[in-house]
């Protein structure tokens, strides 16, 4: 159960992991996520599904090392098993023909964006995709995204690859040039916040996918709650996708940092144990 069948590092801290999960592989759609728990003492974390293969019974996630659980996951080898996977969770992305859709992905946010781009394209939209990262190493899934999009623009903060500049510069370029009917933004909260400020200027309806702290992922705990349009929403059962203009970004970012200190201490401790073992 839940065997890791493939692991491929995109960069030092980011890897694609393909996991055997036949039930979820059959039913999952773009926008869905899973909750995983690595081992008996592990925490439950949400991961958005980047891809799936019904025939092989596998799902794909992309993981960035940010703390103990992601580090442990990246340290697992092909053939090893993840203790618990549950899903698919959340509402699937609402896919329809809108015309021209601008999709922007930052960092590992590109992974959950991929199935959405694929589905939007299949629904007959013209899809223009902007991939952004700090440096060349952090641009992921470029070939796949180029393949599924009508046009692909790559942006790096330091100009080490593609065009130099932030994701918003790439978005502006497209919006200035042609009529955009809808935008989808997935990435770090700060990227989604500024990305949606850009689309708001031009009144382009914008969807974001939030990746907040969760425990059960089924609406039971409310850890993932965030204010959307002045109302408290649960990302796990009401989302994960929301109207970007309604999200209270500062509250969301504040809530993302709830365990910053604990996470930092736990990670330091983890690194010491890893060193001792090595």
């Amino acid at each position: 159960m839940n065997k890791i069948v493939e692991k491929e590092f995109f960069s030092e801290n980011v890897a694609k992991i393909v996991i055997e999960s036949p039930d979820i592989a059959i039913i999952r759609k773009a926008g869905h996520f899973v909750i995983i728990r690595i081992d008996e003492k592990g925490e439950r974390i949400p991961l958005t599904i980047a891809d799936g293969d019904k025939e092989k019974g596998t799902i794909t996630v992309v993981v960035q090392k940010v703390g103990v659980t992601s580090a442990k996951l990246l340290a697992m080898n092909e053939g090893e098993e993840i203790l618990d996977i549950v899903g698919p969770l959340g509402h699937a992305t609402h896919i329809e023909k809108k015309g021209t859709v601008l999709c922007a992905g930052g960092g590992v946010g590109v992974a959950p964006l991929m199935p959405i781009v694929k589905a939007l394209k299949k629904a007959g939209n013209k899809v223009i995709t902007v991939l952004a990262g700090r440096t060349k190493e952090l641009i992921i899934l470029e070939d796949e995204m180029r393949n599924y999009s009508d046009e692909l623009i790559v942006m790096t903060d330091d100009g080490s690859y593609g065009k130099k500049g932030l994701v918003t510069a790439g978005m502006e370029e497209v919006i200035q040039r042609e009529k955009v009917n809808m935008a989808v933004l997935i990435g770090p909260a700060i990227m989604m916040k500024f990305g949606s400020l850009t689309t708001k200027k031009y009144n382009i309806p914008t969807v974001v996918s939030l990746n907040t702290i969760m425990v059960d992922g089924t609406g039971m705990c409310g850890a993932c709650r965030v204010s959307v349009g002045g109302k408290t929403k649960f990302v796990c059962v009401d989302g994960p996708e929301f109207d970007a203009f309604q999200v209270d970004w500062s509250q969301m970012m504040m809530r993302m940092g709830a365990y910053k200190m604990q996470e930092h201490e736990a990670y330091e401790k983890y690194l010491r144990t890893v060193e001792t073992v090595a």
């Binding site: 204010s227 059962v237 504040m254 809530r255 709830a258």
Partner: peptide, 17 residues
């Protein structure tokens, strides 16, 4: 399994479960 909150100001601050 869907907790109720009171919907009063500040209820989404960290440390409120």
């Amino acid at each position: 399994g869907l907790p109720r909150f009171m919907n009063i100001p500040g209820e989404n601050f960290n440390g409120i479960f």
